[in-house]
């Protein structure tokens, strides 16, 4: 399932969406950048409440398929600009981490069978 399909299924709002075809291989949740650096795997969608600039850098470095910002304030304009510049898919939702993880987990686990 690609990022565009995930975005549509979860009703995500695009903040920066340069690579909608990126394949979403799984999910990862953390609000700690150090954990994301250490534990996230390439192709995963990262769900987080963090929305500062370093999130983009971590997503780029770890080759994540997308970052989903859970409910919270709108990210600063420079965060969106940086994501666009670095080619990082950055989307947001009004739902919390638990709900986003739950729905994405369900979506990905039934994805292959429904193909």
């Amino acid at each position: 399932m690609n990022a565009r399909e995930v975005a549509r299924a979860l009703g995500l709002e695009a903040v920066a969406f340069p690579h909608p075809e990126a394949e979403v291989e799984g999910g990862f949740c953390s609000d700690l950048l150090s954990r994301a650096m250490a534990e996230a795997s390439p192709g995963e969608a990262w769900i987080t409440y963090q929305r500062h600039l370093n999130v983009v850098a971590v997503a780029k470095l770890k080759e994540l398929s997308m970052v989903i910002l859970a409910r919270g304030p709108e990210p600063e304009p420079e965060v969106a600009a940086r994501a666009e510049e670095e080619g990082v898919n950055l989307l947001r939702s009004g739902a919390g981490m638990f709900e986003l993880a739950g729905r994405l987990y369900t979506l990905l686990s039934r994805g292959p069978r429904n193909r």
């Binding site: 609000d31 950048l33 963090q50 500062h52 600063e76």
Partner: peptide, 20 residues
């Protein structure tokens, strides 16, 4: 303003500093 934060990185890594 929601989300505005001057928290240092060490504070963010302890789960603080979301600007709320």
């Amino acid at each position: 303003r929601p989300g505005y934060s001057t928290a240092p990185d060490w504070a963010r890594e302890l789960g603080f500093g979301a600007g709320m």
